[in-house]
């Protein structure tokens, strides 16, 4: 069965496994890749896929439920109940295209992945700080 979301784990990230699942669901909600009514994979499916403790998956889903993002329906599974996608979602395609152009010019200028990440996060930090000030 094809799922709306597939989880992946980074064991070296230092982030607790259940939090990684919570974050991945939230990110997908923010990007609009999953939407209200979509079914999350069942605990057993995630467990069999990632070889992790079922308690961990259940805990992640309970956290999401407490935040009102999903609802568990007895015997049927866990479904997305609300979205985090901002109203600006419709601008994403255009913004992504501009970003891709920028990434291309960064690569042409010889920046590797790490330098690109560093430049983006530093610029983002400074720009946010300026806006707050």
């Amino acid at each position: 069965m094809l799922h709306v979301i597939e989880f992946h784990l980074d064991p070296r990230s230092g982030v607790a496994t259940y939090l990684q699942i919570v974050q991945q669901v939230k990110e997908a909600l923010r990007l609009g890749t999953i939407d209200v009514g979509d079914q999350l994979p069942t605990v057993r499916e995630v467990v069999a896929d990632l070889a992790i403790n079922p308690n961990t998956v259940a805990k992640a889903y309970r956290d999401l439920e407490r935040e009102g993002l999903v609802v568990a329906r007895q015997g049927r599974g866990t479904f997305v109940a609300s979205t985090l996608a901002p109203a600006s979602l419709r601008h994403h395609d255009e913004l992504r295209a501009t970003l891709e152009l920028w990434l291309e010019s960064a690569a042409t200028a010889g920046l590797d992945e790490e330098s690109i990440r560093a430049l983006i996060s530093a610029t983002l930090r400074e720009s946010l700080a300026r806006r707050v000030a």
Partner: peptide, 9 residues
Amino acid sequence: LQLLMDGVA
């Protein structure tokens, strides 16, 4: 490990 976790679930 996958089998074990599936069995536990």
